[in-house]
Nucleic acid binder design. Sequence first.
DNA 1: CATGCGTGGTA
DNA 2: TTACCAAGCAT
Length: 351
Amino acid sequence: MRETSEIDLSRTLLNWYDHHARSMPWRVGPADRAAGVVPDPYRIWLSEVMLQQTTVAAVREYFLRFTSRWPTVQALAAAPDDQVMGEWAGLGYYARARNLLKCARVVTDDHGGAFPDTYDSLLKLPGIGPYTAAAISAIAFDRSETVLDGNVERVMARFFDIHDPLPGSKPQLKEKAAVLTPRQRPGDYAQAVMDLGATICTPKSPTCGICPLRDPCQARMAGTQPDLPRKTPKKPKPTRYGHIYIAQAEDGALLLQRRPDKGLLGGMLGWPGSDWSEAPAETPPFSAQWHSLPGEVRHTFTHFHLILRIWTAPLPENTIPNGLLVMAKHAFRPGDLPTVMRKAHDLWRNR
DNA sequence: CATGCGTGGTA
DNA sequence: TTACCAAGCAT
């Protein structure tokens, strides 16, 4: 009896996907795809960018709001920056939103509004890296490209019982994933591996008993699957501190700041404040009787913990400090703020 | 190639 | 409470 071939394995996964594919607003499911329904590259691109390091549950609402407001790449390209950043607020990794707009404008202006369909051409676009280029190429255009995301890394590390730690083992995992990538139904296959990783071959407590690949899985044979994939340890997060100043005029207008495009929370709306460091200076945006609010705002970013003290004062008439903006009460929506700034607003509003 | 870059869910 | 983790990219 011959060994299980790669083609058999991909067919096994596709068959599992045909019965267990998750339903998502941007996805053309296996039945529809088989019936000839073609995905909209704009929606695939938008979902893939939103899904970078972000859970499906978090993305769902954002995707629906974005596509409702901007149904085409041309519509998105024509949108004002502030509105797109505001709509992205809360989703995190805000460079994605800035690159999203850049990319929409390149596609609209330089590609006639049609997304390119090859890995290499997609890779040139802002915000599209190796994973996203492969994903769009495979899912939107049904090209046989190999996607390698966190799910696929985990599935491959376990299936082949690879103990070398990430991220160093990435090229090895990509090779393994490429060998399994079929020429038939590559778009469905890409989504099948990721669905398997998200629902069965999960990081903790994988449910190997119901896995379609349980028999040939090498880590399961060895009993090592709970420990894979190995990862190089992460550095501990330091704690930083900061001051935030919230000033309101008698008519309800608020003093805000548009943050510079580069760096943390780049391009987002926020409150003026100090730098965030071990011992930040107290630097209010204008002289007044500032009062610090009881309590503090705690927030954790990717690479540090932050503890903020919130100060408040009345905003005098005709006061707009350099580089800041005064936003009318009716124009201000807390939902346009990144989460840490929204937390500061919540503490202030409930003062 | 290591680092910077968000947020919310989960154990 | 803390740490880990999620369909990564840019530099």
